[in-house]
């Protein structure tokens, strides 16, 4: 297809005459690839940012300054629910992508709504956890460990919040504009974003919660 032709055209070292792709024919496919690719690069940079917060957390995890440690604070059962919500929401998001590509309203809106609900459920549990911790005097100002914890997990939560705002915007956009190619590209980007949040959560779940309680 034209995408394949495009990629060979920019392949490494091809000395022979490259196949020339008629500009108009490949326009749509190209745009989709370019937008997806660009957004993917952005997500990589986002992952680099998270890795900085992970590094800070790893450095500061034992700096509890006499305050509580992860073992005292984390409740794995709540975290298990959070994880389940987020993973399921990723599945729902995948269903929504299929619905959008198939132009099927019920599938798209339904799955998006489920994604939003699960995401909101995740956020609720997270905020609940945070409020509980601050309530017992284990807020981010208590120790460097808690600063790093709240920043790392909170930054993920902030991403989920922004993701929810984006999700609602995408629902509204499809409602107002229909399944236009440019709107579908944005749905694609949103899905990439949402799945990335999942990957980051898996890392948080492992590094922060599991290692925090078990080790």
């Amino acid at each position: 297809m034209s995408i394949a032709a495009r990629t060979t055209a920019v392949g490494l070292g091809g000395e022979g005459a490259a196949p020339s792709v008629p500009h108009e024919l490949s326009e749509l496919a190209q745009k989709r690839v370019i937008v997806g690719y660009g957004f993917w690069i952005f997500l990589l940079s986002d992952i680099v940012m998270f890795s900085t917060f992970f590094a800070a957390y790893a450095v500061l995890v034992n700096e509890t300054a006499g305050g509580p440690s992860g073992r005292d604070l984390f409740h794995l059962d709540v975290v298990a629910f959070e994880t389940a919500f987020l993973l399921l929401s990723s599945f729902a998001c995948g269903v929504a992508s299929i619905g959008a590509r198939a132009h099927r309203d019920t599938m798209y809106y339904g799955a998006m709504a489920v994604t939003a609900l699960l995401g909101a459920g995740f956020l609720f549990l997270e905020v609940h956890e945070f409020v509980g911790m601050i309530g017992i005097g284990a807020g981010p100002q208590r120790s460097a460990f808690l600063s790093a914890f709240f920043t790392l997990v909170g930054c993920h939560g902030l991403h989920v919040t922004l993701g929810l705002m984006w999700l609602l915007t995408m629902m509204a956009q499809v409602f107002a504009k229909g399944y236009r190619p440019d709107i579908l590209r944005r749905v694609l980007c949103f899905a990439l974003f949402w799945h990335t949040l999942d990957i980051i959560w898996v890392a948080i779940f492992t590094v922060v919660y599991l290692l925090g309680v078990v080790v």
Binding site: E63, Q141, S143, A144, T151
Partner: peptide, 26 residues
């Protein structure tokens, strides 16, 4: 992104009393 995250930590220290780079609290 590393610069953004690092400056964000410093901002959190300054604005919200976090303890990434302070002398106190680890």
């Amino acid at each position: 992104p590393v610069l953004t995250a690092t400056l964000a930590m410093l901002l959190l220290d300054r604005y919200l009393g976090f303890h990434f780079f302070t002398n106190e609290a680890g």
